[in-house]
């Protein structure tokens, strides 16, 4: 294609309306053509004005509050250490601290391990470089773990934002005779139904089974929620969505079900919130 041919693609590209292959070819041309780059910038500015043809609509004021709360919660998590003061006191808080501290310790350990490697290298002969390579591998592994933990952190951030919400309602779940050491918390936003569920001390999940969460609205059949498994310490943290008709009056319960879940709960109940 010639320069003029590429120029013809700039308008559709400014609207993301090219097929993938065409867009890719044009992107390659843009790397070397300042004229087309400048034209594309101008066209994108024009295309963006089409947004003004949508009817302006006022979002609910809660959205602004939610955004600013999330931003603050994110900051709080970033500053890890200061977290204790910000979070509403809840039993599972200890777990978040453990995780956040775990991340810091992992990073700290990785750094110390690398330092030790360097000192050893200075003191001894070149053969020890192998050890350093080993330490580097460990560091890489730990970095991978850090990346994985970041996903967990993202969930925790959502949970934090929810906990900080003025509309949050908190239900404590107690273990039944079947699971006397189990404890749980279910927190949901009374306006949006966004929820988070935390459990501790549940018995290990058998390989062909899974736990299932239930919403039991007063006088109605149980509504199935999420299916989950627990880690080795019987812990689980999962996002949920409260069904609209369960808001305000439902009992939350946990049962053990076949791996893919059930449509109706199988007794016994492992955890449940008090009857309202």
């Amino acid at each position: 294609m010639e320069h003029q041919d590429y120029q013809q693609l700039l308008v559709p590209h400014s609207l993301n309306a090219l097929e993938v292959s065409e867009a890719r070819e044009l992107e390659a041309h843009l790397e070397t053509c300042a004229e087309c780059r400048a034209e594309l910038i101008a066209l994108r500015d024009d295309a963006a004005l089409l947004a003004y043809t949508a009817e302006p609509v006022e979002p609910r004021p809660e959205v602004r509050a939610r955004i600013l709360e999330s931003v603050r919660a994110e900051r709080t998590v970033d500053r890890a250490g200061a977290m204790n003061d910000k979070v509403v006191p809840l039993k599972p808080r200890a777990n978040w601290n453990v995780w956040t501290m775990g991340l810091r310790i992992a990073a700290g350990l990785a750094f110390i391990a690398l330092l030790i490697g360097l000192i050893v290298l200075w003191r001894r002969d070149a053969k020890l470089q192998q050890e350093v390579a080993q330490l580097n591998r460990q560091l890489n592994t730990q970095q991978h773990e850090l990346v994985r933990d970041r996903d967990v952190l993202a969930r925790q951030r959502e949970a934090l934002a929810l906990l900080n919400s003025p509309d949050a309602k908190h239900l404590e779940l107690a273990g039944s005779e079947t699971a006397q050491n189990a404890r749980g918390s279910f927190v949901y936003d009374q306006k949006t139904g966004k929820a988070v569920f935390l459990a501790d001390g549940l018995p290990a999940t058998p390989p062909d089974k899974a736990y299932e969460l239930w919403f039991i609205p007063k006088g109605h059949s149980p509504v199935p929620g999420r299916i989950f498994t627990v880690d080795s310490s019987g812990h689980a943290l999962l996002p949920e969505q409260m069904p609209a008709d369960a808001m305000g009056n439902a009992v939350i319960a946990i049962t053990l079900e076949p791996k893919r879940g059930s449509a109706v709960p199988t007794l016994p109940i492992f955890l449940s919130s008090p009857k309202s």
């Binding site: 947004a51 003004y52 949508a54 009817e55 302006p56 609509v57 006022e58 979002p59 959205v63 602004r64 955004i67 600013l68 931003v71 603050r72 900051r75």
Partner: peptide, 24 residues
């Protein structure tokens, strides 16, 4: 630079048009 009030100002300035766009 991490200025929360700037984010709030940005929201106040463009919430109507951006929400209108997303809703459309």
């Amino acid at each position: 630079r991490g200025d929360e009030s700037a984010l709030a100002a940005c929201y106040d300035r463009y919430r109507l048009i951006l929400f209108g766009l997303i809703l459309r």
